[in-house]
């Protein structure tokens, strides 16, 4: 299973995580890989956690073993911390730094952690930590709805990503409405550049 790649994607309901994952999965299929994907989104519309797991390569199951993800793409900063049981020292952690604070935070014992500190701890522990302000990039592109395409662009910018940028873009085009292709293409490019600049 050397020629394989595991991607864990996490965030909050409504951020476009499933669509992003399907785009990657179809791109993998079109490149001739076997691919399986797991999505958990039972109560996602109600502000819950959404996560997907993509296994590209000769697998039967769609669940990534602990500490075996090649890439974790986080749409929200505490959700990437929650997914670290999938990470090892070589895992690429690419994540949006904009918090979505749980709405019942005041009923909870734990406060939302300090973002700067969170990023610093991740950087200390994981060599390939790429925090980006995806919300800002999406707004610069023209709309916050392109957030997921910004993060998709960031994901494919890491140098060991298994699929080509070209097939990702083709897959995006067959999954999203053509009126938004230009904007989404822009978002992918901007997300791509953001990580290239850090990395």
């Amino acid at each position: 299973m050397d020629d394989s790649y595991n991607i864990f994607i996490c965030g909050v309901g409504g951020q476009g995580i499933i669509k992003t994952s399907v785009i990657i999965g179809e791109a993998a299929m079109n490149e001739g890989y076997n691919v399986s994907m797991s999505e958990i989104h039972g109560m996602s519309q109600r502000g819950g956690i959404v996560s997907t797991e993509l296994k590209i390569g000769d697998y039967k199951s769609s669940v990534i073993e602990s500490h075996c993800a090649n890439l974790i793409l986080g749409f929200e900063p505490i959700e990437i911390v929650r997914s670290l049981n999938k990470a090892n020292n070589d895992t690429k952690l690419i994540f949006n730094i904009r918090p979505i604070v749980p709405s019942n935070i005041n009923s909870q014992t734990n406060d939302y952690p300090n973002i700067e500190k969170l990023i610093a701890i991740l950087k200390d522990n994981y060599e390939y930590t790429f925090p980006i302000d995806a919300n800002k990039i999406a707004e610069d592109v023209g709309s916050i709805v392109t957030l997921n395409m910004v993060l998709l662009g960031s994901a494919i910018a890491n140098n060991d990503f298994i699929l080509s940028k070209k097939s990702i873009i083709e897959s995006m085009k067959s999954n999203l409405r053509s009126t938004f292709h230009e904007m989404n293409l822009n978002a992918i490019e901007m997300g791509y550049e953001a990580v290239k600049n850090i990395g």
Binding site: V12, G13, M43, S44, Q45, R46, G47, G48, I49, S66, H67, I78, E79, V81, R82, L84, N85, P102, S103, N104, I105, Q108, N110, D111, Y112, P113, L118, I121, L122, D124, N125
Partner: peptide, 23 residues
């Protein structure tokens, strides 16, 4: 059994929950 350092372990243990809620 992953060997998280203390600071990281504390961060993981102190995450607030994200229960589904009314929109």
């Amino acid at each position: 059994t992953w060997n998280y350092n203390k600071e990281l372990n504390d961060l993981i243990e102190s995450l607030p929950l994200r229960p589904p809620t009314f929109c």
